[in-house]
Amino acid sequence: MYIKVKDLVGENAMTLDDGAAIYNQIHDPLVQGQVVQLDFEGVEVFASPFFNAGVGHLLADLQPDALNNHLKFEHLSDFGIRVLRRVIDNAKEYYAANQSHRNAIDRIVQDNAANG
């Protein structure tokens, strides 16, 4: 599966919604064992919420080895690579944490967001 990221999010890959747009395209194919190529040609500006929602979130139910083998990144800028690595390290810690503790934090944060 080949995805040109710029076609989905434009040249600024920044927001949670941008990341969710990528995640929604690639999650199921990755679960099914397909190889996914994310081509970042033409994407110029990156912010961490994009990678958190688009890539870090994959670690919730996919193993690092599987992602190393099946998810490929192309034409990613130096800064994009740096942010992506940070996000992945952070996500691995997050998902390695005790599941019940994580659920509790997520529930509180979501309630907080819902209550404004």
């Binding site: 990341g19 961490s48 958190n52 979130h57 996000v87 952070n90 997050y94 944060v109």
Partner: peptide
């Protein structure tokens, strides 16, 4: 602190922005 976040975590882990 790296990894800490008060943002909505609907889409998974957060907490890198201030660190960057």
């Amino acid at each position: 602190t790296r990894g800490n976040s008060t943002a909505r975590q609907i889409h998974g882990p957060r907490g890198m922005g201030l660190d960057l």
